[in-house]
Design a protein around this nucleic acid. Structure first.
Lengths: 133, 133
DNA sequence: TTCTTATTCGGAACGGTTATCAAATGTTAG
DNA sequence: CTAACATTTGATAACCGTTCCGAATAAGAA
């Protein structure tokens, strides 16, 4: 009874766009890029397919701050760094800290399924650009 | 030249409501509670004051998922647990893991100011309620 | 190729949050 | 105490990312 899922042009292009960048873009950026290939693509289709791809485990949805989702073409569990100056989101290449889950499990007396960890600071690029303003 | 900030009835009630719960409520819940005290309170005022209190460092804003902010009357840095079944947000009473920042700093070759860590799973209450549905 | 049905487009609707602004209230100087 | 000024409020409209809708289209099975 599982609903069949079709690999449409739109879905493929959206996935390609996302897989071919490391920039963790929001939906409207993906929309603009994908539109170069499919000029009639609609924004609703982008959102719909991003949700489908997320459910399929092909991509991740990241939400920093409360207003806007970003998407990650790498579905493997990994951590992120958010630059507080320019807003860039970078991957943090350190191992998953499974012992955190043990600690929390003990404190809460319940099982922890997973955790989410983000780092904040100023990225190298912004730091290099100097402390103007 | 700093703009003076007044401790109005509204601001005090909003803060009291938030300080007297451990439930990390969203703005509309705070609004409903505060309205028992101040029936003419408007939702805009709640949002405005929550932002002011956040800027003052009196409270924290937490955003899980992209759609809705919750607020925390305890401004001290601490971790949270989110129940994937009922949505409850609980405090996790374990020490701040400062060594994570060192790890990430090394990987990124930049300074980490702070991090954010949340745990996910099923809370004790939901687990006790059993696996119906 | 035909048929079924998931998917698309386009736009309207939605929901949480912010902005606007006149009226109300608190503050300060005289 | 009063006048003059500044901040805050309440009500409502605007905002913006996201979801939903219905008619038209197209993917994939037979």
């Amino acid at each position: 009874m599982t609903k069949a899922t079709r690999m449409t042009k739109q879905k493929r292009v959206i996935l390609d766009v996302l897989k071919s960048t490391k920039s963790h873009p929001p939906a409207d950026w993906i929309y603009m890029q994908a539109r170069k290939e499919l000029p009639n693509l609609s924004l609703g289709t982008v959102y719909r397919n991003l949700n489908i791809l997320k459910d399929m485990g092909e991509i991740l949805e990241l939400n920093y701050g409360s207003t806007l989702s970003r998407y990650d073409g790498n579905p493997q569990e990994h951590y992120h760094f958010v630059c507080e100056k320019c807003g860039a989101v970078l991957d943090v290449d350190i191992p998953i800290q499974k012992e955190l889950d043990m600690l929390a499990a003990q404190a809460l007396e319940t099982e922890i399924k997973h955790h989410r960890l983000e780092f904040y600071g100023t990225c190298r690029k912004c730091k290099a650009a100097g402390p103007q303003s």
